[in-house]
Design a protein around this nucleic acid. Structure first.
Length: 531
RNA sequence: GUCCGGUUCGUCUAGGGGUUAGGACACCGCCCUUUCACGGCGGCAACACGGGUUCAAAUCCCGUACCGGAUACCA
């Protein structure tokens, strides 16, 4: 039988990290088994569901590149079928009408109210004491015909237990006395979650239900409905939860943006890196390896590798450096630094475009995506050259662009860095970091004269000679000796003027990448000095 | 309360009767170096607790503690 799984979010907010992982695991399982990955929007809670939220969830899945098969199912479209199913169970005597007036909704702290009620019922609560359970069908029909409102509840047997084999948590058993006669249909005719899920899963021919562990007890209720319907339940696989650093609930309200997928997209994360990170939160292939391509994840994924214990998504509020999980940040940096540059290029292009730094000269990118480019191969490559600049491509050309990206990405963490820290490589209009000025320029006032002087030297010296690393090094060293200063003073001063920041690749590479003309102009510029 | 689940470095985790308890991130140190958030090398750091079974327990069993989930005419 072909595996069919589904991701079934309720559209009451953006795609958060927990749902994203659930979606990913469903996707991986489907691809691993050659099955189908379906999407169902559980929008039956009219009050809370929004179209905007649906769109945002779709955006998130799209960003993570978790493409679904077949048409999206909107649960609200199936309400009639759900009602029909409830009525069928009623007709068969497997459910009954409950004429108890609907309890007052206490919106305030529903959760607490429920808990208090449950605690109050402790010990002696008989789940089968509903007076309408035993009402004769004649009387029930009569009261319904008279227009008396009623909910439809499933008639759960008095003795016995539900049981199923969870693919993650193993054999799960629950005594009937722990489960009340659950409501299938509200008195206003609105079908309830457990009914809707079972009906839809049957209709969609779902074979494996992979979802959060918070649904474990729902699974028992759903098994009851499957049994009443005479349908074999699917295989359940419940996932451990992702918790906040204090091991409490990770919530949108309390933790805000860190839990939203769009945050990561907007912060310059690569979907591949985030997927990789997510996959390792609650699942492991049982080997000492961290970087997995999507293909490898698909190939190695198994329900058996899913953990039973919750995982903490670790971050520190109010610490800009640790605004999100360290490992996620590292993973992203690792991808940016080591993935084939051809694969990275489209993302860099998008980033530069949005920062208005993209030039048509960089364009012939098709070649890049298909060809393997100079060194810095895939993740796991044994060596990372300090500089990958090999020759002197025309400044601003396509080849120059590739080499520049390859050079600067070695110290980058996100795609955003290409347009912020890397701005000076693509534009003459870049800012100077005051700390860099202080550290590399102000401390050595002589540089105000020396650097323009160096520019003159470069201009004459490289009129004929190629402006290449070896030659530059020779020139700068001679200049340094003449001035009786240290190489670092000149280099770091130049770095600040040329790039605006105090950190970056080897200065020789920077000179070469910026080019003779740019270097000369920037060394002569007094812009930074005025700050 | 009751039911269900969980507990290995700060975090993600490997290991499921005999291991110096492994890796990754983070942190710290050293090296490289013109800078650095790159890279290299190294360090710190964990089996929740108590019983039992066994020649031998992180690993199996029981209990306790703690954490989480569930409890609804929400999804």
């Amino acid at each position: 039988m072909t595996v069919r799984v589904r991701f079934a979010p309720s559209p009451t907010g953006y795609l958060h990290i927990g749902s994203a992982r659930t979606a990913l695991f469903n996707y991986l399982y489907a691809r691993h088994t050659g099955g189908k990955f379906l999407l169902r929007i559980e929008d039956t809670d009219l009050a809370r569901s929004t179209e905007e939220s649906t769109r945002s969830i779709l955006d998130g899945l799209d960003w993570l590149e978790l493409a679904h098969d077949e048409e999206i199912v909107f649960q609200s479209d199936n309400a009639d079928k759900h009602r029909a199913t409830a009525k069928k169970l009623l007709a068969e005597g497997k459910a009954y009408r409950d004429f108890t007036p609907k309890a007052e909704p206490n919106d305030a702290n529903v959760k607490d109210t429920i808990k208090d009620r449950a605690r109050a019922n402790q010990g002696e609560k008989n789940m089968r004491d509903n007076p309408y359970r035993a009402l004769s069908s004649e009387e029930s029909d009569a009261r319904a015909a008279a227009g008396e409102p009623f909910a439809i509840r499933l008639k759960v047997a008095a003795v016995g237990k539900t049981s199923f084999e969870d693919a993650v948590y193993g054999l799960q058993e629950r005594d009937y006395t722990e489960t009340e006669d659950l409501v299938l249909l509200r008195s206003d005719g609105h079908p309830l979650y457990n009914l809707a899920v079972v009906c839809d899963d049957i209709e969609m021919a779902i074979t494996h239900v992979i979802r959060g562990q918070d649904h474990l007890t729902n699974a028992h209720k759903q098994v009851l409905i499957y049994e009443a319907l005479g349908v074999t339940p699917p295989t359940f696989a419940h996932l451990p939860l992702i918790m906040a650093p204090n091991k409490g609930k990770l919530s949108k309200r309390k933790h805000g943006e860190v839990v939203s997928m769009t945050t990561y997209r907007d912060a310059g994360f690569l979907a591949a890196a985030f997927r990789n990170f997510l996959a390792l939160l609650g699942w492991s292939a049982g080997e000492e390896k961290e970087i997995y391509s999507l293909e490898e994840l698909v190939q190695k994924f198994s329900l058996g590798g899913i953990h039973r214990s919750n995982a903490v998504f670790n971050f520190t509020e109010n610490d800009p450096r640790k605004w999100t999980d360290d490992k996620a940040q590292w993973m992203n940096a690792e991808y940016i630094r080591t993935m084939p540059v051809g694969e990275l290029l489209p993302f860099v292009k998008a980033e530069l475009k949005s920062a208005k730094l993209w030039r048509e000269e960089y364009e012939p990118e098709l070649r890049a995506v298909t060809e393997t480019l100079p060194s810095t191969a895939a993740a796991g490559a044994d060596e990372r050259p300090e500089s990958v600049v090999i020759d002197l491509p025309e400044h601003g050309s396509y080849d120059w662009f590739i080499q520049t990206i390859n050079l600067i990405r070695q110290r980058f963490f996100t795609l955003k860095d290409f347009s912020s820290q890397g701005r000076a490589y693509f534009s003459e209009d870049y800012d100077f970091d005051p700390a860099a000025i202080e550290k590399n320029l102000n401390k050595f006032p002589d540089l105000k004269v020396w650097l323009p002087e160096l520019a003159d030297r470069f201009e004459t010296e490289f009129a004929e000679k190629p402006f290449s690393e070896a030659n530059i090094e020779e020139g700068v060293k001679a200049f340094t000796e003449e001035k009786g200063t240290k190489l670092g003073v000149i280099m770091n001063g130049a770095r600040t003027l040329l790039t605006g920041v105090a950190v970056g690749p080897s200065m020789l590479s920077v000179f070469e990448i910026v080019g003779l003309e740019g270097t000369v102009t920037r060394l002569r510029s007094q812009l930074a000095w005025r700050l």
